[in-house]
Write a protein that binds this DNA or RNA. Structure first.
Lengths: 211, 211
DNA sequence: TAAGGTGCTGACCAACCGTTCAGTCGGCTG
DNA sequence: CAGCCGACTGAACGGTTGGTCAGCACCTTA
C-alpha cells in the first residue's frame, strides 16, 4: 500500500496533486465563464496559485483545457460502462447508458454547457482541444455501436449500420441533454432515457405494430 | 417595378447593397476562420472597405454576426419549406426536409462548421447571437413538429409528443450533417435522408414487424 | 549558520481586438 | 464653378490575454 510505484513522492505525488488541483479549478472557472472567457489569471486565482505556476505543470492554455475535457469525459465513460454492464439486454444497456449520461450532464451542468460551445471541427489548424473532444465522442459512439451490434446478433435489434445508428442515438441524447439544460424543471432522468430508447427502438411510424 | 417603395434609392438601396456586401464578406471570413477568430479588421478587408465603415452599417460585431446567422438560416428554411411543400405524406415531407438541410449544409460547409461552434447556452449574459441561433433552431423544430402532428392526424404516424419527436429528428439530422462534414466522400444526400427517416419511422427494434 | 537549490510569485511584455473619431475627398447642389 | 456634405478611412485607444522571467522565500544540506 505504501511501497508500490513510489519513486519520488516529493516530486511525482506533489506534481500530480498540483496538476489535479489546477484542473479542478479550471473546471470550475470554465463552468462559470465558458471556455472562451476562462483566463489563465482567473484559473490561477481559483486554484490559489499564481499564473506562472500553471505553466510549471502545463505547457500552455490549450493543454490545460484539453486535460479538463479528457478528465470529464473519462468520468462519464466510466459511469456509462458501469451502468451498461449492470443492465441486461440491448434495450436495458442503452437505457442505462443514457441514464448515466443524463445524470452526469445534470450534475456537471456548468462544464457541460461550456463544452457544447467548443465543438468546432474546422479542418485547418485543428487545435488540441477540438481533436480531443472529437476523439472522446468517437469513443462513445464506438461503445454504443458495440452494444447495438451485440443486440443485433442476439436478435433483439434488427440488422442495421451499427455505427450510424449509434451516432444517431448519441446525437439524440445530446439533444435531450441540451433540452434538459435549457429547462431545468423537466421529467426524471429515467423517464427521459426511456423515451429516447423507445423512439430509437420503435420509431414513430405506425406501419403494422403499435407496440 | 420601378415605382414601388422606392423612397430614396441613393440612401436605402445603397445601404442595403453595402450591408449585403459586408454580410457576405463576414460569411466568407467566418467560414474560413470560425466565429471566434473572425476579426472586424479581416472582415473589412474581405469586403474591401475600412474597418470603420462596418460600424456605419452595424452597431457592433455581435449584430453583424447575428445578421450572418439569420441570413443563412432564412435560406435554409426557405429551402426546407419548399421541399416539404412539394412532397406528399409525412414520410415524404420529412425526407424532403432532411434532403434540403443536408444539401444546404453541404453547399455552405464552411459557415456551417463555424455555426456549430457557437451553440452556447450559458444562462447568464445571453449574447444576441446565441439568442438568434436558439430562436432559429426553435423555428425549425416547430416546423418539423407541425409535419409530425399532421402525420399523426392522418394516421401515418403513431401518437407521440410531436415536439419531442421533432427535436429528436432535428438533432439526429445535425449528427448526420456533422458526419458528412467530417468525411466528405459519403453516400448521396437522398440516401442519407432516407436512412434517417427510416430510423425515425421504424426504429432499430425488431419486436414483431420487420417492415 | 551559511550556502545552495527549488518551487513559486506576480509584475511585465507583446500581441491582438473591438470601437471611436478627427480628418479626407469625391461628388452633388445651388 | 464654389462650397458643402457625408460616406469613408485608418491611426489611435483602452482593455484584455497568453506567456515570460528575474527574484523571493523557504527548505535542505553541509
Amino acid at each position: 500500500m505504501a511501497l508500490r510505484t513510489a519513486s519520488r513522492t516529493k516530486e511525482e505525488v506533489l506534481k500530480d496533486f498540483r496538476t489535479g488541483e489546477i484542473v479542478q479549478a479550471a473546471r470550475r472557472v470554465i463552468g462559470e465563464l465558458g471556455f472562451a472567457d476562462a483566463s489563465m489569471e482567473r484559473i490561477a486565482h481559483e486554484a490559489g496559485v499564481a499564473k506562472g505556476t500553471i505553466y510549471l505543470y502545463f505547457r500552455n492554455k490549450e493543454e490545460l483545457l484539453a486535460q479538463v475535457a479528457d478528465h470529464g469525459f473519462a468520468v462519464l465513460m466510466e459511469r456509462a460502462r458501469a451502468g451498461a454492464a449492470r443492465a441486461r439486454g440491448a434495450e436495458g444497456k442503452l437505457a442505462a447508458l443514457l441514464c448515466a449520461a443524463l445524470e452526469h450532464s445534470t450534475e456537471n451542468e456548468a462544464i457541460f454547457r461550456a463544452l457544447q460551445e467548443h465543438r468546432q471541427l474546422a479542418p485547418e489548424n485543428p487545435p488540441l482541444l477540438a481533436a480531443r473532444l472529437e476523439h472522446n465522442l468517437e469513443q462513445l459512439v464506438s461503445f454504443v455501436a458495440g452494444v447495438i451490434e451485440r443486440g443485433t446478433k442476439s436478435g433483439e435489434l434488427r440488422t442495421c449500420n451499427a455505427r450510424r445508428a449509434a451516432r444517431f442515438l448519441v446525437e439524440s441524447m445530446r439533444g435531450a441533454i441540451l433540452e434538459r439544460l435549457r429547462e431545468p424543471t423537466r421529467s426524471s432522468v429515467q423517464a427521459d432515457a426511456a423515451t429516447i430508447v423507445d423512439f430509437f427502438l420503435h420509431g414513430v411510424g405506425t406501419t403494422e405494430s403499435p407496440r
